[in-house]
Simulated scan of single mutants.
Amino acid sequence: MPGGRLTQQERQQIALGLADGLAYAEIARRLDRPTSTVTREVMRNGGPTAYRADLAHRATERRAHRRGQAAPRGPQAPPAHGRDAEAVRAYEETLTTVFIQQGTPKMMARVMACLCVSDTGSLTAAELVRRLRVSPASVSKAVAFLDGQGLVRRERDASRRERYVIDDDVWYQSMVASARGTLLVAETARQGVAVLGSGTPAADRLENIARFLDFISESIVRAADQAREVLHTAPAAPPEGDAASGGEATSGSGRPPRTGRP
Rank of each mutant, 00 (worst) to 15 (best):
M1Y: 13
L6P: 00
Q8S: 08
Q13S: 07
I14C: 05
I14F: 03
I14L: 07
A15K: 08
L16Q: 15
D20G: 03
Y24F: 15
E26S: 04
T35K: 05
T35A: 12
N45Q: 12
R52D: 12
L55W: 03
A59Y: 01
A64D: 07
G74R: 02
A80I: 05
R89W: 07
R89V: 10
Y91D: 08
T94F: 06
T94E: 14
T97N: 03
F99S: 02
F99E: 03
T104N: 05
M107E: 03
A109I: 03
M112C: 07
A113R: 09
C114S: 13
C116S: 10
D119H: 08
T120K: 09
A125M: 08
L128T: 14
A142R: 00
A142Y: 00
V143Y: 01
L146V: 11
D147T: 13
R154K: 14
D157T: 05
S159W: 06
A177W: 08
A179Q: 07
A179W: 02
L184G: 02
E187F: 04
G192L: 11
L213Q: 04
E218C: 05
I220R: 06
A224P: 08
A224V: 01
A227C: 06
A236W: 09
P238T: 05
P239M: 11
G241Y: 04
P257V: 00
R258C: 01
T259E: 02
